[in-house]
Design a protein around this nucleic acid. Structure first.
Length: 372
DNA sequence: AAGAGGTTCAACCGCACAGAC
DNA sequence: CGTCTGTGCGGTTGAACCTCT
């Protein structure tokens, strides 16, 4: 038994809103306030579904909306927040004044995920985005993209996520999460998870460390820091990718600390040295250098595709260093973030919190931390 | 200039949650 | 406690628009 539809389908207008409808809706809400969406269309004299009215108001008609392009600062924040919150668009949007969840979601899907595709492509990682857009250098493939072609390629069962616990990202959806795997790698290391997980090879290199093909055979070996919600997930082919660049001994020196490190991709970061850096202990350093290596590679291989007019990857890298620096505080947000993980991945001392989604206060604290 | 192919974004859909009853 | 209703969220769709040949 499915639940009753939110409104009568017959006699309901769909599709684009007209200026007249907008005017009616705006006037009604201005005089009656928001809410009671179900009865609103009838009361306002609109032949629209209540949900449609709400959506139109929230995403378009509200006076506090900020129109125009996403700014680099906003994009940076989206990337940053997505790395820890996952596809929690409404939560992310709530911290971007004047932006809607729909807008952020669209922006992520149309802009940011593509950039990640290029990153993967530049490293010859098996593609996870179907029908990636061609680069300007590539010839277009013949054949118009049909609507049906835009439907999911895999007939996977639809797994609904529970509120505040996003489903484990499917290979496609997880692309977005991979964008910020560098921060996740840092957090993972900061959590001291290696000790609980056993040798790094077991969870970093995984089964597909050597061949690469096996990345395709098991897309389920994602590791989630935040329980089952798909947030802070690890995708092992990205992890492989990171670590392939940073094998044993592939340690950089950093005599000047963050300042030098900020020169991402230039020669101030020296690979191949066994010296430790002044950033902290090696446990902190290793994932950092993995991340760093990844980005060096990225910049070398595909500069034209990664000119990244918006994402400030250098900033992300710097943030990673900050996380390293913050390791000293064992009660830091980072360790707190990890409280919700699965028993197999995180220290037993936190086991009472395993799998627990963040509550509203925790989310706000996390956001505050991200914004700090 | 025309048309095919690609991209963007507004809108829709279905589900989950919370609260009322 | 179970059911119903209202609401919000995330995923998906498709028309409009843009770009390229």
């Amino acid at each position: 038994m499915g639940r009753a539809p939110c409104c009568e389908k017959v006699g309901i207008k769909r599709g684009r809103w007209t200026a007249e409808e907008d005017q009616i809706l705006s006037s009604y809400i201005q005089s009656n306030g928001e809410g009671s969406w179900r009865s609103l269309p009838k009361n306002a004299g609109l032949k629209r579904c209540g949900k449609s009215c709400r959506l139109r108001w929230v995403n378009y008609l509200r006076s506090d909306l900020r129109r125009g392009n996403i700014t680099p600062e906003e994009e940076e924040l989206v990337v940053k927040m997505h790395s820890t919150l996952g596809n929690r668009w409404s939560l992310i949007a709530s911290h971007l004044p004047g932006r809607t969840d729909n807008e952020i979601k669209n922006y992520w899907n149309s802009h940011l995920s593509r950039k990640l595709y290029y990153i993967r492509k530049s490293h010859d990682v098996p593609a996870v985005i179907m029908n990636p857009p061609p680069t300007s250098q590539e010839k277009r493939r013949p054949g118009r993209t049909s609507r049906s072609a835009m439907k999911p390629k895999i007939d996977k069962p639809k797994i609904r996520k529970t509120k505040k616990t996003s489903a484990p990202p499917d290979p496609d959806a997880n692309v977005a999460v991979k964008a910020v795997v560098r921060e996740e790698a840092l957090m993972m290391e900061l959590s001291g998870a290696e000790g609980e997980l056993g040798p790094r090879d077991d969870y970093y290199y995984g089964a597909c460390h050597e061949g690469g093909d096996c990345c395709n055979t098991n897309n389920n070996n994602l590791m989630s820091i935040n329980g089952d919600d798909g947030v802070l997930s690890f995708d092992d082919d990205i992890i492989d990718l990171l670590l392939d660049e940073s094998g044993p001994g592939n340690v950089f020196t950093s005599s000047a600390g963050d300042e030098e490190l900020s020169h991402l991709g230039d020669s101030t970061i020296t690979k191949g040295s066994s010296e430790t850096s002044n950033l902290g202990n090696l446990g902190c350093l290793q994932p950092c250098l993995s991340v760093e290596s990844f980005f060096n590679y990225e910049h070398q291989v595909n500069d034209e595709a990664l000119t990244d007019e918006f994402i400030d990857w250098e900033y992300v890298w710097q943030e990673g260093n900050k996380l390293c620096d913050e390791r000293e505080g064992s009660d830091s947000m980072v360790s707190w973030l990890l409280n919700g993980d699965d028993e197999t991945t995180i220290g037993k001392s936190n086991s009472e919190n395993f799998g627990k989604p963040l509550d509203h206060e925790e989310e706000n604290a996390l956001v505050a931390w991200l914004l700090s």
